[in-house]
Design a binder for these strands. Sequence first.
DNA 1: GTCGGCATGTAAGCTGTTACATGATTGA
DNA 2: TCAATCATGTAACAGCTTACATGCCGAC
Lengths: 178, 178
Amino acid sequence: MSLRHAILTLLATEPGSGYDIVQHFKQSLGYFWNAKHQQVYQELRRLSEDGWLACQLDAQSDKPDRKVYSLTRAGLAELQRWQAEPAAPNKINDALLVKLYGGALAEPDNLVGELERHRLTHADTLTRLQAIEQQYRALSAAEQAQQRLPYLTLRRGILGEQAWLAWADEVLAELKGA
Amino acid sequence: MSLRHAILTLLATEPGSGYDIVQHFKQSLGYFWNAKHQQVYQELRRLSEDGWLACQLDAQSDKPDRKVYSLTRAGLAELQRWQAEPAAPNKINDALLVKLYGGALAEPDNLVGELERHRLTHADTLTRLQAIEQQYRALSAAEQAQQRLPYLTLRRGILGEQAWLAWADEVLAELKGA
DNA sequence: GTCGGCATGTAAGCTGTTACATGATTGA
DNA sequence: TCAATCATGTAACAGCTTACATGCCGAC
């Protein structure tokens, strides 16, 4: 599993609550990591039990209390141990491609509609990621240098979404043309 | 779950054994669906229990016996029902990007090595997919028409791998340059 | 004779999803 | 008043991985 290590990675840069982590996944980082709040809260508990995270209660007057987690020395060591070991190739299970593959048995219009629906969300994601890229480009050279690696992961999102859209256009042209 | 429906999709085109299905996932279809044999055999049993698959024993003299599965009428109906319902956007969990994101805490050389290692396997996959594309292009117009939808999924694999490689080159240039 | 391919499975355990649960504050 | 945001969780279940298990055949 690497959810544990995704969480450690986020908290290594900046301490935060379970809620914060989930927001990261929902917003900027969703193109490379996803998890539901239920899973995140459970992992935070386990990571604390393992001694990799320390927790501090942050009482807020107007909002619910927050549990702010940060890495312990053991947590940082564990993160670095994980970083040093080779990562397995990514597992892909894409239901949309299964549908397209077997689309001869389905309503043709349905397939087109489905692709157009997905196209919209991918186009949205691309716009969102490009907006983040613009923010990065507006930073000073020093700030850019600091954000260099997260920026390179952002580039993966952008290039990935562009490729997805180019493919979808190819497919839609084919499906509508013939 | 869509493993059930991935299996139904494969068997709808052509009846086959669990082993056949696993080979498909290992070879051509791995860029959009993956499953281990243990999971496939279990699903085949469940799909039979649900009445969506029929099974026929194929006794071979030189090789182990095969259980050849094919769709029942109910199985086809279920597949079409699933095809008509909207697909959820794809979930992505990419450990390599997590490593890159938090790479400031790791050995820089390790990161480069890791990326180069992954680069090789992606380049291999691309070569393999392009070979399949060449086979497709060599087919007659009639045969191409029949294979049109699977071919469009193959294009996804090709465009996806090309984008991945373009990104990796960008990243490696950055990491080595600076 | 050992390794890889063919061909099938069971069982235990880990990971991830869905359903259920609470409760305050703020804006429409 | 209704919905959304902030903020946390438990419990049951579904999905997937890892380990274990068998046995024949052909090639090196």
